[in-house]
């Protein structure tokens, strides 16, 4: 009998709780929404809007190098501003910025950046650094493209791939990332229309639909060629049987830029802190940090910071030093 009454109380409590929950389930969780970050986050937590919080959307290939973790630590220690960095692929990062969910965009896709700026979503575009993409592949180089100009290399890959030459395979990211958009540009420069001539042109062209690291692993398993950024390749190198085949040429240039979300489009943007961060990252201190990153782990710097007048000239054609808050 006593266990019966216990169960009765329990079920009554459950029904009561259901009532409370139906009445205010989201309501009860929302106040927590403001309260709990103070306990869980180690850094200075502030309300989601306003205050010293800066939301940054970036791409996986940039984040995966570890550069942004280092920048976050340094910047937070210096200024007390809380950087919330989310890396989700170029397409998603840009989508987050157009939806006003972040304050800053850090990407490496000049054509998509230009479209974002032209549509009025961004302000204060600054280029910060560059490195080079690489065409990597099996050491035996079955297509024989080593040492070629990258565009010429792509042309040969296409010709031999579509002709069914054994061992000539190419793995594409196939995910609309910055690296994928660079690949499309290279096919275009080689004289092939991406959608009609390259996609679906045969078994040699493999669309992975994955991140850079997974794409490299796939290429390695299949003994195929692929286009990669240098940082991810260095990070994965020990697990791969691939080597750089072509790593020279202006066409492989990989330019990184920072853009603040336009406060006229998105009133919720913390434009003041966004501008402060942009000014910091284009300062000599910020660029010094970027230029030294990777030396310890890989024996070479992963990024070359951009300084004027180099950045204003071809092939960069961008602004890299003018302060944004004084503009």
């Amino acid at each position: 009998m006593s266990s019966g009454t216990k169960l009765l109380t329990l079920s009554l409590a459950a029904i009561l709780a259901l009532g409370i929950c139906l009445a205010g389930c989201t309501g009860t969780e929302t106040p927590d929404g403001q309260a709990i970050p103070n306990e869980t986050a180690t850094e200075t937590a502030a309300p989601p809007s306003g205050g010293a919080v800066l939301r940054i959307a970036t791409t996986t290939s940039l984040y995966d190098t570890g550069l942004l973790d280092m920048i976050e630590d340094t910047y937070e220690a210096e200024t007390g501003v809380d950087l919330l960095i989310s890396s989700q692929g170029t397409g998603k990062a840009i989508e987050l910025a157009t939806r006003c969910d972040v304050d800053i965009l850090l990407v490496h896709s000049p054509s998509q950046e230009q479209a974002f700026m032209d549509a009025g979503y961004g302000v204060n575009h600054r280029c910060i650094a560059y490195n080079f993409f690489q065409i990597v592949g099996p050491e035996a180089d079955p297509a024989g493209i080593a040492g070629m100009d990258p565009v010429e290399g792509f042309r040969v890959l296409y010709e031999k791939g579509t002709a069914g030459e054994p061992g000539v395979l190419f793995v594409s990211r196939g995910d609309n990332s910055g690296t994928h958009s660079k690949e499309k540009t290279l096919w275009d420069m080689a004289g092939y229309d991406y959608e009609t001539e390259v996609q679906g042109s045969g078994e040699w062209y493999i669309e992975a639909g994955k991140g850079m690291g997974e794409t490299l692993v796939l290429a390695s398993e299949k003994d195929a060629y692929t286009l990669t950024d240098e940082g991810t390749f260095l990070a994965f190198q020990t697990d791969l049987v691939l080597t750089p085949i072509i790593d020279q040429g202006d066409a492989l240039l990989n330019r990184y830029s920072i853009i603040a979300v336009n406060p006229e489009q998105c009133p919720s943007v913390n434009i003041e802190e966004a501008n402060n961060f942009i000014d910091w990252i284009i300062s000599d201190e910020g660029k010094g940090l970027i230029g030294s990153f990777g030396v310890e782990d890989y024996g070479k710097a992963l990024f070359t910071p951009l300084y004027p007048p180099e950045c204003t000239a071809s092939p960069f054609n961008c602004t890299c030093a003018e302060s944004v808050s004084k503009a």
Binding site: E29, G33, Q34, I36, P47, P48, R55, S86
Partner: peptide, 11 residues
């Protein structure tokens, strides 16, 4: 529900 500021939070 954007005004709740709950995107990118544990809540």
């Amino acid at each position: 529900f954007g005004f709740l500021g709950m995107l990118f939070t544990p809540q």
